[in-house]
Simulated scan of single mutants.
Amino acid sequence: MTTTHPRSASRTSGTAPIPPGSAPTGGSPRQALRERDLAKAASLTDAVAEALRQRDVPDGLAGLAAQTGWATFHQAAQAWIDDPSQSLDAHLLQAFDDLRALFATAPPAQARLES
């Protein structure tokens, strides 16, 4: 996958312009951007969860996987911004490796309940 560093991309790249008169009123531009970012994240997470459900993944697990995937991507993207010497792919691989390592060291829920 070819990626460019986010600082070299346009600030509006990948987003549709807000039509005149449709921006939230009473808030700062930063707040409006944050709300738009949250709405976009929710939409993407819902789409991933729905795709998983269509592959017969149970509803709760599909939502959990979609939210976990989004959070892991967000972590990797921030790491890429902080350290552009590595590719976004490398940061994604590291973030998912870290997540796997975290789960590998956690005791199973049943073992915690029996303690």
Rank of each mutant, 00 (worst) to 15 (best):
A90L: 09
R112H: 02
P108K: 03
P107T: 04
A90K: 02
H91K: 05
D97H: 11
T105Y: 10
P107D: 02
D83G: 03
H91R: 06
A95G: 07
A95Y: 00
D97F: 08
L113D: 09
L113P: 00
D98M: 11
D89K: 05
P84L: 03
D89V: 12
Q86H: 06
S87K: 00
Q86E: 14
A111V: 07
S85D: 06
A95K: 07
F96V: 14
A104Q: 06
S87E: 08
A111G: 03
P107R: 09
L113Y: 00
D97E: 07
F103T: 06
L88T: 11
D83W: 05
L113N: 02
L102W: 07
E114Y: 01
A90D: 12
P108G: 08
D89Y: 01
L88F: 06
P108I: 05
L92N: 11
L113V: 12
A111Y: 03
L92T: 09
P108M: 08
D83L: 04
E114A: 11
L88A: 07
T105A: 15
A111N: 01
D83T: 10
E114L: 08
D98V: 10
F96H: 09
A106K: 10
F103Q: 10
Q86W: 01
H91I: 15
T105G: 13
R100D: 02
E114F: 01
H91W: 02
F96P: 02
L93R: 15
L99D: 01
A101F: 03
A101P: 00
L93P: 01
L92P: 13
R100Y: 04
E114H: 05
R100E: 05
D89N: 13
D89T: 14
L102C: 12
S85M: 05
A111F: 06
P84Q: 01
F96Y: 08
L93M: 13
P84Y: 02
T105H: 15
A101H: 03
L113E: 13
R112W: 01
T105F: 08
Q110K: 02
A106N: 06
E114D: 12
A90Y: 00
S85V: 06
S85I: 05
D98H: 10
P107L: 10
Q110R: 03
A106E: 02
P84A: 01
